[in-house]
Simulated assay, not measured.
Amino acid sequence: MKKLFLIIGAPGSGKTTDAERIAANRSDIAVHYSTGELLRSESASGSERGKLIESFTSKGQLVPLHIVVQTIIHAIAEAPKDVILIDGYPRSVEQMKELDSVLSMRDDVKLQSIIEVEVSEATAKDRVLGRARGSDDNEEVFKNRMHVYLEPLEEIEKFYANKNLLHKINGERGIDEIVADMQKYIESKI
């Protein structure tokens, strides 16, 4: 059975880097995906689902929720390892509910935990604006991304806490300390 860990956090929380490092440290058992990478990879594959995804993204439209979840579930099922780390998902209450609904009908994938990398808005802003990787790393875009992250957060936290699946990690520390803490927690759940 595949063991799924979802890693969420504000923009600049380090969630992607944390997940990448853990998957590299434990490449014997774990693999890491981000939702965007999964959609791009499926689109590039030329599969029927990939063509469908491309029909939305080529017009700048959002890929419908059920297609996103199907893509994630397909990637999990096909993953070469049994421990799967996915960062940046869910981003909305609708995404959370859709994934929960799909997972409840499967016996080959189990959601082990959702890990929230907690950072203050000030830290997130400093990190995002400090890295300035592209045109979307500016104050106005950061505020919007932060709002999009925070708006559904309380409901997402409550949902997973009620299922005893929510685990929070202090993301204000150094990367090595955060990764070690998160990796130890993941290993304790497998």
Rank of each mutant, 00 (worst) to 15 (best):
L166E: 02
E172Q: 07
G9S: 02
V31I: 15
R133P: 07
N138M: 11
E157D: 04
S101H: 15
S47D: 12
I190Y: 11
I67Y: 09
F159M: 05
K184L: 07
E139H: 05
L111A: 15
E98A: 08
R26L: 12
S45I: 08
E42N: 12
D176M: 04
D87K: 01
K110G: 14
S120V: 03
R49Y: 11
V148W: 00
Y33A: 08
V128T: 03
S27L: 06
N162Q: 15
K3Q: 13
E48M: 07
R26K: 12
G130L: 01
Q183K: 13
D181S: 09
K125Y: 08
K189P: 11
G171F: 01
A19W: 01
M182A: 01
P64G: 10
D176N: 09
L129W: 02
T71C: 05
M105E: 13
D100V: 06
Q183W: 12
S47V: 04
R131G: 07
N164A: 07
A75L: 09
S113E: 06
A122C: 10
M1G: 14
I7A: 00
Y89H: 04
E140H: 08
K97P: 07
R133C: 03
L39P: 06
E155F: 06
E151N: 14
D28E: 01
Q112E: 14
E78M: 11
R173M: 05
S58L: 10
S113N: 11
F5L: 00
Y149A: 12
L153P: 00
I7C: 03
G130D: 06
I114P: 03
D28P: 00
A77S: 10
H74Q: 09
V128P: 03
M1I: 14
H32F: 09
S120T: 15
S45C: 11
D107H: 01
D136R: 15
D137A: 15
G12T: 09
L38S: 02
A132N: 12
M96F: 05
H147D: 15
R133L: 11
N164I: 00
F159S: 10
D107S: 04
D100G: 05
